[in-house]
């Protein structure tokens, strides 16, 4: 079968991720979309480790490690520094986890987004602080077990995408490793757009979500088909739903393989199903309106 995905590999096999880690598949596809003229800025997150300890690197593009709170600001500087040296072409990409994006680095990306800084900000969202061993973040869904919510998280997941949209950015998208062509296309597209671009990547985490590592792609696909993680993009304000199943699969199908949802009682499940359905209806209405 002929695929639209470039053959070139910019992520090496010697990385240090856990078995079944979605964020490594995501990095591989992201770099296929972006190509060699890319510099990555990584704040404290799983990728601090995955990229490799000194003097090794699992990446064939330059990487700058940045503090937890300031990946976007660091990336602004990288871009400005490159421009000062006459390089307008290189894409500067932040590759950050949800802890850095939803919580501690929010001010930094918000400033960069509002100023329209020329960068691609990617949040690989595994829905908790996984590098430190599964503590809740602002991205953790309602009812989920983590080390700091042993009886279930009490609040709904923060609507980051809405926050991003409120910054009038040039491109925002969601991407899933279960849909590689859509994934790579979005990164290639983001590469060609100027200004602040944002892609949120859904990133199932076997040890943090408590499921078998061979189920990563299945879970990523189920998240899309149940409406938990819809695939869409917003370019210069124009909304596009990339995949709209005729009928959503029941949420329970996505939750069942995950140990982190074990404590969810039927009543809570029904409530969660209700909020997923309601959000999906809003997206469909937006699709119809656009």
């Amino acid at each position: 079968m002929k695929t639209s995905i470039p053959q070139e590999e910019l992520l090496r096999s010697g990385h240090q991720a856990c078995q079944g880690c979605a964020s490594t598949v995501a990095m591989r596809y992201a770099l296929k979309g972006l190509g060699r003229r890319t510099i990555i800025v990584v704040p404290a997150c799983c990728w601090t480790v995955i990229s490799g300890a000194a003097p090794n690197s699992s990446l064939d593009v330059p990487l700058l490690h940045a503090p937890f709170a300031s990946a976007a600001a660091t990336a602004c500087g990288v871009k400005a520094g490159l421009q000062a040296r006459g390089d307008e072409e290189t894409t500067v990409m932040v590759w950050a986890g949800d802890g850095s994006t939803y919580d501690i680095g929010l001010q930094s990306w918000s400033g960069a987004a509002e100023r329209g800084e020329d960068m691609l900000y990617v949040c690989y969202d595994n829905e908790a602080y996984m590098n430190t061993g599964v503590q809740r973040s602002g991205a953790t869904p309602m009812g989920v077990w983590t080390m700091t919510t042993p009886d279930g998280n009490r609040r709904p997941k923060k609507d980051l995408d809405a926050l991003l949209e409120a910054h009038h950015i040039s491109y925002a998208a969601t991407a899933s490793i279960a849909y590689p062509e859509d994934f790579v296309r979005k990164f290639a597209k983001a590469r060609a757009i100027k200004g602040f671009r944002f892609i949120r990547v859904f990133s199932p985490c076997p040890p943090g979500w408590k499921y078998d590592p061979d189920k990563t792609v299945d879970l990523a696909r189920l998240a899309v088909l149940t409406g938990v993680f819809p695939l869409y993009e917003i370019e210069a304000g124009a909304f596009r739903l990339n995949l709209a199943p005729a009928k959503l699969k029941p949420l329970a199908e996505y939750l069942a393989p995950q140990g982190r949802y074990k404590g969810l009682d039927p009543e809570a499940l029904a409530r969660e199903q209700g909020s997923v359905t309601e959000r999906w209806q809003r997206l469909l209405a937006r699709k119809a309106a656009s």
Binding site: T74, G77, G81
Partner: peptide
């Protein structure tokens, strides 16, 4: 914090 972080990036780019 971001002022100094951005200089970390810019100086790393030369």
């Amino acid at each position: 914090h971001s002022a100094m972080a951005s200089l970390l990036g810019a100086a790393s780019a030369g």
